[in-house]
Amino acid sequence: MNATPPAPDPTDLLRRAAGGDQGAFRALHAATQPKLFGVALRILARRDAASDAVQEAYVKIWRRAADFDPAKGSAVAWMATITRNVALDAVRKTQPISLEDMPDGFEPAAEAVDPLAGRERSERLSALMKCLEELEPRKREMVLLAYWHGASRDALAAKYSAPAATIKTWLRRSLLGLRECMET
């Protein structure tokens, strides 16, 4: 089973990149580009825009590599967060996301499964998913649409036919609930 050499550890590569090791950074890029592209593509929908965002994200990752703290989560999760923020900035500059194209009854939790994630799902993700399941289905869906697809409060208001202020309240309550659940 273990005949293939172990994949380089992103945390180690990121640490070396923080010390100025460009070769390690290139290896980190090769190992993580599809993941980060997936993160950006979900938000931006267009492949060219997602490529631009990924490029921007890696430049930021290189610059901020020294800020990464392994105690606070995985290297890939940290890199994905940076990518997400770049993609969100880009999408806000172009146009608000419309959720009209999404099919009714869309269930983000079921839709979004990385084939690897089933086997390699981290404890943190398992715990978070468990806590998400404690939310009302509609509220869970809103949180995931916002996180995975960059849906804004206004887009969610249109989709769920609720005032934006109500969406805001729901999102905040959901996030508080998630944190409380994660802390217990």
Binding site: P34, F37, A50, S51, G73, A80, P115, R124, A127, M182
Partner: peptide, 17 residues
């Protein structure tokens, strides 16, 4: 961000063009 970041693990990798 750290609390929510594990959600990215569930995002499928896509090979860019």
């Amino acid at each position: 961000e750290g609390l929510l970041a594990p959600l990215n693990e569930a995002t499928a990798p896509v090979t860019p063009d």
